[in-house]
């Protein structure tokens, strides 16, 4: 235990106040979002739980605020705290799933491409090239557009979350694939891999048991950075109105709704979810920066 406490990465962490704060913020936000059904006072998806009479109440500390609605309500009378917790929950579910799918797909393809080389490498990397020629937002928009064209209106509505996750995952896998491939190209020339090859071990075993544990560092950095990107991408798509609809709002949707009050006085409807989203993403990115420093000692100050 003392070994762990004194290991380089933990020591570095204890001496980086930004990393500590980021970790606390991230844990708080993710924890409260996960616990939303138990700690929120209302279910923002259930129209019957809120009352139009409570509409447009300001936060507690402004005159007219009510103790029940700490951060105020929107025009429908929806409690902002509950909306944000549920919204963050949805944003995180989508972001994490998309990132996980992109990681599995990208690492699998990237490692195989790097390890086997040849035509497999050529094909995977050419597909990655095409993917790079179409930026993430564009890919996601396109996939959403195709889903609209192919699926019936109703099916599309009910599958929106799935479509969003697919769209985001497909626009992020290239990062993983390129990083995994580059790392494998370095590792596979190392002597421990040659030793395993000489023994006649199966390529799948060599990749999973020998190479993968050695390239986890850079992959972990990409996972953090891409989780942030996935959350931003979801928010952006929802903001553009092609993500989640107003009756099941994610953070991006809440911001889009809030935009309508930009010019009137109800600032909290816009700025509270915005601040929450930015805090979440900044915290994740700070952790990503910290991990980058841990895994690349050259960047250490």
């Amino acid at each position: 235990m003392t070994n762990f406490w004194n290991s380089d990465s933990v020591w570095l962490f204890r001496h980086r106040p930004t990393a500590i704060i980021a970790a606390i913020v991230a844990v708080l936000i993710i924890g409260s979002a996960a616990a939303a059904p138990w700690i929120a006072i209302a279910n923002p998806y259930d129209l019957s739980t809120f009352n139009l009479m409570d509409g447009l109440l300001p936060p507690l500390w402004q005159s007219g605020g009510q103790a029940q609605f700490v951060l105020g309500t929107d025009d429908q009378g929806r409690d902002m705290v509950s909306a944000i917790l549920y919204g963050a929950r949805l944003s995180l579910i989508i972001g994490l799933s998309a990132m996980a799918i992109a990681a599995v797909l990208g690492v699998g393809l990237g490692m195989s491409a790097g390890y086997f080389g040849g035509w497999l490498d050529t094909i995977v990397m050419r597909i990655a090239d095409i993917q790079l020629a179409l930026p993430a937002i564009l890919t996601a928009l396109l996939i959403d557009g195709i889903a609209r064209g192919v699926l019936e209106q109703e099916t599309h509505q009910s599958l929106r979350v799935v479509v969003l996750i697919t769209a985001i995952a497909l626009s992020l896998w290239v990062n993983f694939a390129r990083t995994a491939r580059a790392s494998v190209l370095v590792e596979r020339n190392k002597e421990y891999v040659q030793a395993a090859e000489m023994m006649g071990q199966h390529p799948v075993r060599i990749m999973s048991r020998h190479i993968l544990p050695n390239i986890l560092g850079p992959l972990l950095v990409i996972m953090t950075v891409d989780l942030a990107s996935a959350i931003l991408l979801e928010a952006t798509l929802s903001f553009l109105g092609i993500g989640l609809p107003a009756d099941s709002p994610s953070l991006g949707t809440l911001i889009r709704i809030g935009m309508q009050f930009l010019f009137s006085g109800e600032w909290w409807i816009l700025w509270v979810p915005t601040l929450f989203l930015v805090m979440l993403v900044v915290a994740i990115n700070l952790l990503g920066d910290f991990l980058r420093e841990v895994f690349n000692p050259r960047l250490r100050r």
Binding site: A228, L232, A235, T236, F239, L240, G252, I255, M259, L262, L270, T274, L277, V278, V281, V282, I284, N285, L286, D289
Partner: peptide, 14 residues
């Protein structure tokens, strides 16, 4: 800049 990378473009616009 870290905050800059983390704030979505549309929020900057708003």
């Amino acid at each position: 800049t870290l905050v800059g990378v983390s704030v979505p473009t549309f929020v900057i616009g708003i």
